[in-house]
Amino acid sequence: MFLKPYFAFAKKSFLGRSAYRFDHFMSILNTCLQIFIFWGIYQALYGGRSEVDGITMTMVSTSFILSMGLKAVFYVDDYFLPSKVWDGSIANEFLRPVSFRGRMLAENIGNAIFNVIFHFLPALLISVLLIGICPPESAGMTVCFLFSTILGYGVLWTISFAVQAAAFWAINIWSLATLKDVLINIFSGTMIPLWFMPEWIYEALKITPFPYIYFTPVQIYLGQLSYTEIAQQCMLQLIWILLIYLLGTLLFKKGQKKLVVQGG
């Protein structure tokens, strides 16, 4: 069964995470703290009003609780490929009868599953009990939310993959990875829900991949999109996944060719 090695990679990374319990508890605490800080800020900004421009405080709370929870789940190690390029072990990966990109994805999925169970759900539970969030709009919307969340993860993963592939030409990708994180934090709606962005920025962001990572699933959860719009948004998520994956693959193949032709 050709998927067997990838299950092994995912399992290994899942079990690897469970070995670091202190790190894991600190991550839950960190997410909860971030959520409470943002809740405090938005409480102050709302100043006792029940809504601003039709957006209620509960909708905002739901948006950042879900976004930050998903952010904890969507952790992708931006240094997985670069570390292998820099220490030379990438060559060894090319000599294995498995796809290296498949391995990257499998290990990240193993991580994500761990994060869902031991990070997202506890942080969500604490936040729901102490702050409260809107219930899902309907069972159908919940299914669509889950589907769109997986696609959102795909968008984030492919962006990270493309950034990592730059390591074939760079001795350090820290600046590139940081720039990517900043852009995602600001333009994906994690810190500031995109409803509060100026109209022109909001419109401009629609032609970037960033809103499709967290904001689209959150909008679906809140029932702000019709089923037709959901289909369109999911299609756009898929298109972004394909486009960025192609870009990342192009860089990866060029990098691989560089190794094979120039020897490093």
């Binding site: 090695p5 092994a8 290994k12 690897g16 030379g88 072990s89 060559a91 060894n92 294995r96």
Partner: peptide, 21 residues
């Protein structure tokens, strides 16, 4: 000049991974 093993993993863990691969 090419590292073969996963440094963080145990010896048997590395071999188990090879078994899957």
């Amino acid at each position: 000049d090419i590292p073969v093993l996963q440094k963080e993993d145990t010896v048997v863990g590395n071999f188990e991974l090879l078994r899957s691969i």
